[in-house]
Amino acid sequence: MNETSKLKKVLEKGVFAVTAECGPPKGADPEAVTQKARLLKGHVDAVNVTDNQTAIVRMSSMAACSLLKSEGLDPVLQMVVRDRNRIALQSDVLGASAIGIRNILCLSGDHQVFGNQPQAMGVFDLDSIQFVQVVKNMRDGAKIIGGDSLTKAPELFIGAAANPFADPLSFRAVRLAKKIAAGADFIQTQCVYNLERFGKWLEMARDNGLTDRVAILGGVTPLKSVGMARYMKSKVSGMDIPDAVIKRMDGAPKDKQREEGIKICVETILQMKEMRGVKGVHIMAIEWEETVQEIAESAGLLPRPG
């Protein structure tokens, strides 16, 4: 049970890292998770498991991480502060480490109003930055909030999210610096379609010396159709899809749009690989895990280091 994070090892070696995303099912079926695991195995370094994303009730991230682990993958446990207070969060951090989960991504989470439980009480006892700091203190100081000592510290590679496309842009570097100061080892970004804005954000991070202190993994999501692109642009918060991308998707014939989406995705990765300060890519192929291998292959990211 003492294995370390594979993601961490890859990044330490200076290899351009590849992570993917696995959304747990809206049910108790373990097969749904293990099937996705098999699609991803060998093509990525680690797999994020979302935590009731868009505030829709799904199998717990921790349980799905455990299933991925038993399939030989390195899971990244996503945890949102929306649903648990500091007692539950710290307890789950200990539990995650105990069952061999070695990566955690600390998030605020989509607001409960977006999901299928809009009447839920949003907890937000901690915010995502405080949560990063709490996990860091647990790991490095073996202490929980309030100073009580742990009998054994959790072993976790700590991640946080960043949205280069949210406002105000000028403050995004400050917030990134706060996440790093709190203890983030790696950052996974919101899906990048607007490379120009992503570049600006990255430049600010570089200018502040942040890219040397944290491993930034650029997020990508292959578009399945122009409809999906339009939907994401207008309905998904924090998303920035330039009109040029929509036009390009629209220009492809209906039966070729998936290919076009993959092409855009691969091109984005290739460009990100050239950008100073980007240490890897996070491929979020939503309910389309089978495409991850193709994308990684086309972007020259395979084979993954053993």
Partner: peptide, 17 residues
């Protein structure tokens, strides 16, 4: 989201997601 260390990634054009 009661953030003490905001803004979150949902802040766009000055409005809340």
């Amino acid at each position: 989201k009661q953030l003490l260390n905001g803004p979150c990634g949902g802040s766009k054009n000055g409005v809340c997601e």
